[in-house]
Design a protein around this nucleic acid. Structure first.
Length: 424
RNA sequence: GGAGAGCUGGCCGAGUGGUCGAAGGCACUUCCCUGCUAAGGAAGCAUACGGGGUCAACCUGUAUCGAGGGUUCGAAUCCCUCGCUCUCCGCCA
């Protein structure tokens, strides 16, 4: 959520910043709502002040044993009038809040301006794609004989669900374990186990709601509903919702390995084959809650933490700075890491790391006490470290052998009982 | 699932219809005192939003005592609904 003070004082600038990310902010509607809010709020508060004052007089009079009926008559009509104003004010504030909750974050000045993913900027490229002296297969053809079972997944749950068996299932687990161990043991994150079902407040806090409800799965619960997390960014970041974190606890660095559930509404026909786009996938997530002065340094650090996994697995990748038109709702700046997939002859997103500055913190009311002892909004960042399913795809493709076996990357071998490859 | 108790400021905790935004304590900040790693004294110390303004910390108003409704001139206090926490019973991995 943007700071309403900024919108009041600097509306034109906000509108043009948002236009960079293809968002058309209705400044006229906002100004009209604001104008009415101001008059109604002022009037309401005057009426409340009058009521409070008179009521106090009644109290004083009664405590002295005097007759208060004259004062009582004076406020007779006030109640109805006040109630009407209060109701209107409530409506206006709900409208304004609703409008603000649907406005994305303002891009950082360093973000390249562009319409969509084609205009993202490559910032670096690491690793050399391997040359194959045999005809390579894509991950589905490599994986299916080894235990990647799309058919049974579809039978159990439908399209975009996959069952893994045997060595592939174990390799998937090894990847997740390796990532989690790296983030906790080398990069200083606290390991968390989080709920997979969350309430609506949490999703509003991180920005998935109210705007992106159709992307989420939900289940009924107690006359309401709970949502399946689309990423553990939601649970990790919401740990600080409505909290005032002591300055000395910053930065907070949290990580978790969880499944993620996405309905992929609007993605019909895209990446229908294989593990690339699933309704359920695993991810190791990194979240940092930091002092506002340090959030861009933290962003770079987190990109490094995600890259470390790719380097350790010796997977070629490139780093992309997302352009204004391709960034997510809450981000001011985002780096994507894209891993080399030889069968697709291209790089595919495997990690996305964003600084949200105070955008989520404002929704979350997540604060720290500054040097003057005053609460101030924190900055929040999140990033994948990494998406496990897509990493499995990359390993299967990059480490495949002519005989149908897949070499196990050296850093994973201890997680695989010392084996050096998985074979038919 | 059943029965009971509770939810108050950063923390603890008083307050059962009226000068209560809320006693007291702890923590914190500033100052004073003290020849010392401690004690004593004084003051300050919630958040959000509105209005005003010589615009960083000034004045003023409103709201907030788990959330939402209701009763009332007036609600932390009474009533209703919901959420959460704790205790006991039942059940269960």
């Amino acid at each position: 959520m943007l700071d309403i003070q900024t919108l009041r004082s600097d509306l034109d600038n906000v509108v043009s910043q948002l236009a960079k990310r293809n968002f058309d902010f209705d400044a006229g509607k906002f100004a009209a709502l604001e104008a009415e809010r101001k008059t109604v709020q002022t009037l309401t508060q005057e009426l409340q002040a009058k009521r409070n004052q008179t009521s106090k007089q009644i109290g004083i009079a009664k405590s002295k044993g005097e007759d208060a009926s004259a004062i009582l008559e004076e406020v007779a009509g006030l109640g109805a009038q006040l109630k009407a104003q209060e109701e209107r004010l409530g409506e206006l504030q709900t409208d304004l809040q609703g409008m603000l909750l649907n406005v994305p974050n303002i891009p950082h000045e360093s973000v390249p301006v562009g319409k969509g993913e084609d205009e993202n900027v490559e910032v670096r490229k690491e690793g050399t794609p391997r040359t194959f002296d045999f005809e390579i297969k894509d991950h589905t053809d490599v994986g299916e004989p080894l235990g990647l079972d799309f058919e049974t997944g579809a039978k159990l749950s439908g399209a975009r669900f996959t069952l893994m068996r045997g060595q592939v299932a174990k390799l998937h687990r090894a990847l997740a374990q390796f990532m989690l161990d790296t983030q906790t043991e080398q990069n200083g994150y606290e390991e968390c186990y989080t709920p997979y079902l969350v309430n609506a407040e949490s999703l509003v806090g991180t920005g998935q709601l109210p705007k992106f409800e159709e992307d989420l799965f939900s289940v009924p619960h107690n006359d309401s509903k709970l949502y399946l997390i689309p990423t553990s960014e939601v649970t990790l970041t919401n740990t600080v919702r409505d909290e005032i974190v002591a300055l000395e606890y910053l930065p907070l660095k949290l990580t978790a390995h969880t499944p993620c559930f996405r309905s992929e509404a609007g993605a019909h026909g895209r990446d229908t084959k294989g593990l690339i786009r699933q309704h359920q996938f695993d991810k190791v997530e990194m979240v940092q809650v930091v002092h506002p002065e340090h959030s861009y340094a933290a962003l770079d650090e987190m990109v490094g933490h995600a890259e470390g996994i790719l380097k350790a697995l010796a997977l070629p990748y490139r780093g992309m700075s997302l352009c204004t038109g391709d960034m997510g709702f809450g981000a001011t700046k985002t780096f994507d890491l894209e891993v080399w997939l030889p069968a697709q002859d291209t790089y595919r997103e495997i990690s996305s790391i964003s600084n949200c500055e105070a955008f989520q913190a404002r929704r979350l009311q997540a604060r720290f006490r500054n040097g003057q002892g005053k609460p101030e909004l924190v900055h929040t960042l999140n990033g994948s470290g990494l998406a496990v399913g897509r990493t499995l795809v990359a390993v299967l493709e990059n480490y495949q052998n002519a005989d149908g076996s897949v070499t196990i990357p050296a850093v994973l071998q201890s997680y695989m009982g010392g084996k050096t490859s998985i074979t038919l």
